[in-house]
Design a protein around this nucleic acid. Structure first.
Lengths: 145, 145
DNA sequence: ACATTTTAATTTGCATGCAAAGTATTTACA
DNA sequence: TGTAAATACTTTGCATGCAAATTAAAATGT
């Protein structure tokens, strides 16, 4: 029997696993400088894009797990980056809102992507674009069942 | 000031985050059928490729964190998939060895990649190959420094 | 209106990823 | 040779990702 399919080096999943961990690791230092973890940074990016959204919308935008989101938001609220208030129209929902401090962090955060881009020497911008397109296709294929 | 770099939809890291989680999620069911978690599956693939290696070699091959590896191997040993013995030449080292049962699992595991490939409809084999190459470049760039 | 179902969040338990500290051996070096 | 440095693992603490159970509130159906 042929087991090429079980060769680690032929596995897309393992490439993604390594690439995802690698880039998360690369973000760790720059993000630590502004006191954010990676998922917290993703939440901030979502809120800088659109503020005053429900937790469900935040989950939708970020693809972060709901169970994790509760914990992440709690820590971010402790750091006074945002506040969470009940939606008066639908009391099941809770609205997430950036604080002044949370909004201000955007300026410092803008440095983070630049620092990351500096790390790329073998890959050019066109290839990164192509890579993102391919990743979108993969995510799309895996989305529905 | 322009903040395009902080747009979530322009971030490679977020694409990788989603793609990696998506594919890990896709593996969950098929792997549960053979009672393996994803990292455990990676360890098994490494061992099916080369058995009787040290934990350091296993870490090198799989890119799994050392601290996590200890725990993962412990659970796999409990499931009787492998055994761990001290290397008599260098007593710091420990050798990981598949059990008969661990070796036998390879046949069932061979079905897993096939089931995953079935999920891809938008992406063809050539694109998957290209994607893997690009991911290698990214990992390479992020490796040093 | 009332019960059922659906939606929005939180909570809990398990399995990592990762940094940092700790232990046991082995190597290297003065 | 004796001590410092390096190597191979393990342990611990924190932050998720995810599934499953739970709670609260709103929407549906009869």
């Amino acid at each position: 029997m042929a087991f090429e399919q079980l060769q680690l080096k032929n596995q897309l999943c393992h490439r993604l696993y390594m690439a995802s961990n690698s880039i998360a690791r690369a973000y760790r230092e720059p993000l630590a400088a502004i006191n954010l973890t990676y998922p917290q940074y993703v939440v901030m990016m979502a809120l800088w894009q659109q503020d005053q959204i429900t937790i469900a919308q935040l989950i939708q935008t970020t693809s972060i797990d709901g169970g994790a989101m509760t914990q992440i938001l709690k820590k971010m609220e402790d750091k006074a980056l945002l506040t969470i208030v009940k939606d008066q129209d639908d009391k099941r929902k809770r609205l997430v809102k950036l604080t002044h401090q949370g909004q201000g962090l955007k300026v410092d955060a803008a440095e983070v992507p630049k620092q990351i881009m500096c790390k790329f020497s073998q890959v050019d911008a066109a290839q990164l674009g192509q890579l993102m397109q391919l990743l979108d296709l993969v995510v799309g294929d895996l989305k529905e069942n």
